[in-house]
């Protein structure tokens, strides 16, 4: 395998991992599979288009504003929609996320049409290749995705492992009733999970749009990242990281050595294989699955 291929795998895995983090966060805390995640990611990218248009001379401000909007978006989705479904069947919540996805797709076309937008062009940024090793080049935006994925995962790990609210998020996922009885407001924890989930999704959408633009089909990328989250086990962030690497490696190997036509199918093939052997994913916990 050439170094360039390894670089390609790392970049694709970083994209999938950054998107998957949001699936895992929401699932782990509330056992809800958010099937509007890809759409929320796309909205995150469109928000960057909007803030870039407003503050084209101040990219840092535009990026910060878009990132904060990504966080707020999740809080709003929770407060307006998902909050009212706590205590209802998980299936009802999942169906609502599907409806939300349809709604967001419609809304995005109403607002931004089906045109391709390039926030990088609005900032006047080029996306030049960087030589990271002899014979290995990746774009600046791809490099940023890899760096950001590492930062996001490290930050999430530290947050969940060492802060009180992180511990509370883990606790609420394990036993929501006991969490409430220990004084934890479940709505606050769930809202936090949704906020962090759409925040990371927005970051992914923003960087993808800086790399290659955003248009109405970007939501599909969320669907392609889904196998990565599932392969690793939906309730494990580490699993999502490993799952993203496995799926990305399989996809790139299929493009390179078998047939590029397979690239769409391979993530789901890997998923089927893993689920056949370990239905709870590589790093998921078994009892979590039983509860669904």
């Amino acid at each position: 395998m050439s170094p360039q291929l390894i670089a390609n795998i790392v970049v694709l895995a970083a994209i999938y991992a950054l998107v998957s983090a949001g699936y895992v966060l929401v699932y782990r805390v509330s056992h809800v599979l958010n099937l509007a995640h890809g759409e929320l990611m796309m909205i995150g990218a469109y928000i960057l288009v909007a803030t870039a248009g407003l503050f084209s001379g101040n990219p840092i401000l535009a990026l910060l504003l878009a990132a904060v909007s990504g966080l707020v978006m999740g809080l709003v989705v929770y407060a307006v929609l998902m909050r009212w479904l706590t205590g209802e069947a998980v299936l009802a919540a999942v169906l609502v996320t599907i409806a939300l996805g349809i709604l967001l797709r419609g809304l995005s076309i109403l607002i931004w049409t089906t045109q391709q937008f390039y926030p990088a062009a609005i900032f006047g940024w080029r996306n030049p290749p960087v030589h990271i090793l002899p014979g290995v080049q990746i774009s600046v935006a791809s490099l940023a995705i890899v760096a950001l994925t590492i930062i996001v995962y490290a930050a999430l790990f530290l947050f969940l492992q060492f802060t009180a609210w992180g511990v509370r998020m883990r606790a609420a996922g394990q036993n929501p009733l006991l969490a409430e009885q220990r004084g934890i407001r479940l709505h606050a924890v769930y809202a936090l999970a949704w906020g962090l989930s759409t925040f990371t999704a927005s970051l992914a959408g923003m960087l993808l749009s800086l790399d290659s633009g955003v248009e109405s089909t970007m939501a599909t990328i969320g669907l392609k990242a889904f196998p990565a989250a599932l392969v690793g086990g939906l309730d494990s962030l580490f699993g999502a990281l490993v799952g993203a690497l496995i799926v990305a490696a399989a996809e790139i190997a299929a493009i390179q050595f078998v047939n590029p036509l397979l690239s769409d199918v391979v993530p789901f093939l890997v998923l089927l294989l893993v689920l056949a052997v370990r239905p709870w994913g590589l790093f998921g916990s078994r009892e979590q699955l039983d509860r669904v």
């Binding site: 990746i138 089909t217 599909t220």
Partner: peptide
């Protein structure tokens, strides 16, 4: 190349 590919680099 499938539509809606996350990364065209491969």
């Amino acid at each position: 190349v499938p539509p809606a590919t996350a990364d065209y680099t491969p």
